[in-house]
Simulated assay, not measured.
Amino acid sequence: MRNVEQVSSVKNELLDIFMSMEVAEHKQRQKSAAVRYLRARRGIELHNEFKQLERDIAGFDDELMQ
């Protein structure tokens, strides 16, 4: 009976360790995904800013030519 209790205790301990590792990995994946999302968003914003700047410059050039 004592061996069964010890085995059960060890199983529970291993399961707890495994679950805590899974939680830590999940948190790390979430952080990485958030960083990728923010970088992508900033890249899109920069692209749009450059396009707007090009339009503004083109409009300015048109005004100078007239």
Rank of each mutant, 00 (worst) to 15 (best):
M1Q: 09
R2D: 12
N3E: 13
N3P: 00
V4G: 07
V4P: 00
V4C: 03
Q6R: 12
Q6D: 09
S9N: 09
S9C: 05
V10R: 14
K11H: 07
K11N: 09
N12E: 08
N12R: 10
N12L: 06
N12G: 08
E13S: 10
L14E: 05
L14P: 01
L14D: 03
L15C: 04
L15N: 11
L15S: 10
D16V: 03
D16S: 13
D16Q: 12
D16W: 02
I17F: 12
F18R: 15
F18H: 14
M19S: 14
S20K: 11
S20P: 01
E22Q: 15
E22I: 10
E22K: 13
E22F: 06
A24L: 06
E25Q: 13
H26P: 00
H26M: 12
H26Y: 08
K27F: 04
K27D: 13
R29P: 00
R29T: 06
Q30T: 04
Q30C: 04
K31A: 14
K31E: 14
S32M: 11
S32N: 15
A33Y: 05
A33K: 13
A34Q: 14
A34G: 09
R36C: 12
Y37P: 01
Y37T: 11
Y37C: 10
Y37K: 15
Y37F: 14
L38K: 15
R39F: 07
R39Y: 08
A40F: 03
R42H: 07
R42N: 08
I44M: 08
E45M: 03
L46Y: 06
H47E: 15
N48W: 02
N48R: 05
E49W: 01
E49V: 08
E49Y: 02
E49I: 08
F50M: 09
F50A: 07
F50P: 00
K51Y: 03
Q52A: 07
L53P: 00
E54H: 02
E54F: 02
E54P: 00
R55S: 11
R55W: 02
R55C: 02
D56H: 03
D56S: 03
I57L: 05
I57D: 02
I57T: 01
A58E: 05
G59H: 02
F60C: 11
D61K: 12
D62Q: 13
E63A: 13
E63L: 10
E63Y: 06
E63K: 13
L64K: 04
Q66R: 13
Q66N: 13
